[in-house]
Design a protein around this nucleic acid. Structure first.
Lengths: 135, 135
DNA sequence: CTAAAACCTGACGTTGACGTCAGAGGCAAG
DNA sequence: CTTGCCTCTGACGTCAACGTCAGGTTTTAG
């Protein structure tokens, strides 16, 4: 498959695919004229790369861990990296969950038609004002 | 409190605090000589800003939503923004959870001393090779 | 009083994952 | 054969959240 088709299938740009190759994340065969050709499995690999990018991993980290995730080969160092990234992601999930819950509370208060919202708002504003009054 | 103390308390850099002010996220009073002075509540506000940054919100989005989250005041548009960001964060949690589970599987396989890991690795490598054999 | 530490503004530098543009070649259709 | 789309390399542009440096003022410790 050529680069345009892979881009369309995996939902990333052509430029991004060339960048992945440059970073050593995605190899490609070349036709006689020098054009990139990808096997079908490349689409899955691109999805995996996107998944790891979305989790906040850098190209350098991904290139180190991709063999582990794709082929389950591991060294002691790669296992340490894997565990470290797993824990980082786990911590991120925790803080994201807290943030979501906080937004949920705000949404619930602002959507409820009773006066809880306003009373709380008034309290907060009063507290702000009292701080502001003593510069 | 001065900017250095606020930075130390909230764990961000002095530069970051000045940047927050520039972006309209964090106001400060000025002493007679022009130095920034912050109330105690500023530390909480910085924590909140960090929380929202960590959730992937931009300065522009945060400046729009901070009044809602801090004082529970809301307009129809701000409520829509809140809901949109909440859903974005929720989706992010979902994909992060999937990524973490995938890494967990890899870790479990690479840590187990039996041969499951190697057999799977061999299968994957064989599959790769068969793809590679037909360029 | 003086030296160190903290603060100010202003401006340029950094980083990562691409976007975008230029100029040149490749490929199937009519 | 040429037209139109795809692809190539190479290089510069972008954007956000700061880092860093320069040159000057303010506050604090001794």
């Amino acid at each position: 498959m050529r680069i345009g088709e892979l881009a369309a299938r995996s939902g990333v740009s052509v430029r991004a695919l060339r960048y992945y190759e440059e970073q050593g994340l995605l190899a490609a065969y070349r036709s006689a004229s020098g054009q990139r050709r990808y096997p079908e499995a490349a689409a899955d690999r691109v999805q995996l790369i996107q998944m790891l990018y979305a989790a906040g991993l850098s190209s350098r980290t991904i290139v180190e861990l991709l063999p582990c995730v794709e082929a389950n080969v591991s060294t002691p160092e790669s296992r340490a990296r894997l565990a470290a990234e797993r824990n980082r992601i786990d911590a991120q999930i925790t803080t994201l969950t807290r943030t979501r819950d906080r937004l949920d509370t705000v949404i619930r208060l602002s959507e409820s038609p009773d006066s809880d919202c306003m009373r709380i708002a008034d309290q907060d504003l009063a507290a702000e004002a009292s701080h502001s009054a003593t510069p």
